[in-house]
């Protein structure tokens, strides 16, 4: 469904990610794990059109999308939830969700699915997004991303700023989405949560992919256990 080959990107002053290759198949959940500063966010920004790659290909459903503007990629069926969420703070929960369906009017069935998944949002439909707690904002960001009925949901550190209980809840919601057939790509520092969700994973270190494999295999890998699972 999504295939990235030889992707190199960065900012003035040097490449942050180099020669990255990975793929996500239909119906899979794939994780990209790595420590802070490994380049996870830059990688996603480059894949999703928020950062111009200097070389490499990004192919989504047999169509080259490398270097396309973020708004065009969004309309092809990839929804991205960035770590900073980028909600519309002075707009209501309802309006934030409705804009997720842009340029279409929000589909009532999809709206219902989202509100059933996150009942808190239903309670707060009229509240401004900026006045909600971190956990609620995260739910809204995922909810907004789902409103366009994406084929692929990409999340950058969905647990950022969330208490452990809320982080676990966020992953429960993602698991429910996966069971409904949604393809998910997630970057995460809280590796145990991501590992429980995903089928496969890649380890990103200093801007390059150092390991890849099924989540079960990665969970047994001594380096991964030491560096990311806190097990000696």
């Amino acid at each position: 469904m999504l295939e990235v080959r030889g992707l190199t990107a960065g900012y003035q002053g040097g490449d942050v990610i180099r020669d990255i290759g990975f793929h996500v198949d239909e119906g899979e959940a794939v994780m990209i794990i790595g420590s802070n500063g490994a380049g996870k966010t830059s990688l996603f920004r480059a894949v999703l059109g928020l950062l111009q790659p200097s070389s490499g290909d990004v192919v989504f459903q047999d169509e080259g999308i490398g270097g396309l503007a973020a708004q065009r990629i969004a309309r092809l069926g990839i929804s991205f939830v960035p770590a900073e969420r980028h909600l519309f703070p002075r707009m209501t929960v309802q309006d934030n969700l409705a804009l997720g369906a842009y340029p279409n009017r929000p589909d009532p069935t999809t709206m219902k699915v989202v509100l059933d998944l996150f009942p808190r949002l239903a309670e707060r439909r009229r509240q401004h997004a900026g006045t909600m707690s971190g956990g609620e904002q995260q739910m809204l960001a995922v909810g907004r991303a789902l409103m366009s009925e994406p084929r692929l949901l990409v999340l950058d550190e969905p647990t950022t700023g969330l208490a452990p209980k809320l982080a676990a809840e966020a992953y429960q919601a993602l698991r429910a989405l996966k069971e409904n057939g949604l393809t998910i790509l997630v970057a995460e520092q809280q590796v145990p949560l991501a590992m429980a969700l995903s089928d496969r994973g890649y380890v990103l270190e200093n801007g390059v992919i150092s390991k890849e494999g099924t989540s079960a295999d990665l969970a047994k890998d001594p380096d991964v256990r030491r560096s990311y699972l806190g097990i000696a």
Partner: peptide, 24 residues
């Protein structure tokens, strides 16, 4: 209106607007 909300969303958060498919 959808268009009116889309315009406001760019004022609110330009990157957020791009992520839902709006061309600022």
């Amino acid at each position: 209106t959808t268009l009116g909300r889309a315009i406001r969303s760019v004022i609110e958060d330009e990157q957020g607007a791009r992520l839902v498919g709006i061309d600022p």
